[in-house]
Design a protein around this nucleic acid. Structure first.
Lengths: 243, 243
DNA sequence: TTCTTCATCTCGAAA
DNA sequence: TTTCGAGGTGAAGAA
């Protein structure tokens, strides 16, 4: 990354000047950012309209667009990767359009004023390494199945059932089938419903009369989830992904 | 928004110069963006590590932080609103730290090179107006209950049950209780589980022997969801939020 | 492609 | 503060 090539910026450019920078940057696969007063229209899975205000806009080389206000972690409007970015000047105003198909969606940004425009040539070879996920919880259990209960034996992970894949499938000390559903954090009623669907599907899939135990493994459960577990005859084991 | 006050930028600044700009901007409640080669460490609900690469960093006045690579709609690392942003120079490197409590979480960004730094004074009075939401679907049904089925009479929305609030609660032509669950888009098994919980809770809550009908209203359902509906004795009505 | 589930989900509303 | 469900959820993996 050198000073000559990596960054190109404009302060309060004319619309045509900004358009040229954006067009060139999009063409060469650079990341573009704009800041200024704009309106935003979206139409696709839903539809939205945003009146004039100061926002920060990002166009990524993979086709994603982001419109950020001064508040919130989430963009106020956006377009996912895979879009075509187009930039034009209409009636003296810089206009961006990001479009995609399947589903057909359009994002249109019209700038009343462009306060800042920048293009960045990005090189990022690194992958993010995350720990503390559900996958970590699964590994913890496979390494030490007694954490679920003494005598538990895992037989498969992601075992297919008519209701979907079971996180951990195994049997208890006395040979009964056990379905384990894992959650990396405190769970509500939805996770209980999920476990119940798997247990139900397996009881039908295996031969009649086979009792299947369902065990929810998570750091903790809410009250309603606990009541639902009791009603469905399911069990809970408290365990965290790490430590 | 004037040229004098709204935007302040630096290209390839010294670490101390960048620190001063960031510190002043954070102090006055401006939005800050940085672009350059950096590493990122996160520790909190999970933990992650990201080796050196070129990224775009945003610090928002509400305490949110975003780290974006050249790919993806989602930031590779982030911190939600409510954090304290701190900026320092350590061993000649610009370092940002965004920290919050409950849960305790820390995001640390260390710049090897700052290619660009900018501060933006933002004014955004507008609210986003969205259509095509679940609320629109609800209004559509309340205006014309026959869309659910001829003779359907809504009696309440968001009616409380021991399992949570029911979207639309009413009765059919023959006076039987009907629970309606709304989804703005095609649904899977999770939505069926949700409806089933409400129906079950209401049957217990009302007097014994009261049959409660459950109707899922959505544009469409997946195969598994349809099977699950059949097994649970629940119904489906195809309806979109708009048009 | 569609389907299913995970996510540092985020966000908002209500208790 | 916690809980619960909506979301233009996004993203990944499998069928």
């Amino acid at each position: 990354m050198t000073a000559d090539s990596a960054v190109e910026t404009l302060s309060y450019p004319e619309a045509n000047t900004a358009r040229d920078l954006v067009a060139r940057a999009v063409d060469r696969g650079a990341m573009v950012t704009l800041f200024g007063r704009c309106t935003v229209e979206y139409d696709g899975r839903a539809a939205s309209s945003l009146g004039p205000g100061d926002r920060h806009v990002t166009l990524k080389p993979d086709g994603a667009s982001l419109v950020h206000t001064d508040e919130g972690q989430q963009p106020v409007n956006w377009q996912p990767p895979g879009c075509e970015h187009a930039v034009t000047v209409t009636d003296g105003a810089l206009e961006l359009c990001s479009e995609r198909s399947n589903p057909d969606e359009t994002l249109e940004i019209s700038f009343e004023t462009v306060a800042h425009a920048a293009a960045f040539d990005v090189s990022d070879p690194e992958e993010l390494a995350v720990t503390g996920t559900e996958a970590d919880l699964k590994e913890r259990i496979l390494e030490d199945p007694d954490l679920v209960e003494p005598g538990f034996t895992p037989l498969a992970t992601e075992r297919a059932t008519p209701a979907g894949a079971v996180d951990v499938y195994g049997e208890d000390e006395s040979g009964r089938t056990v379905v384990v559903e894992l959650k990396r954090r405190r769970v509500g009623p939805d996770a209980v419903g999920q476990l119940d669907r798997y247990v139900d599907a397996l009881e039908r899939d295996l031969h009649a009369g086979t009792a299947v135990r369902g065990v929810l493994v998570a750091p903790s459960v809410t009250d309603r989830a606990r009541q639902l577990l009791a009603k469905k005859g399911l069990e809970f084991v408290s365990l965290e992904p790490v430590q």
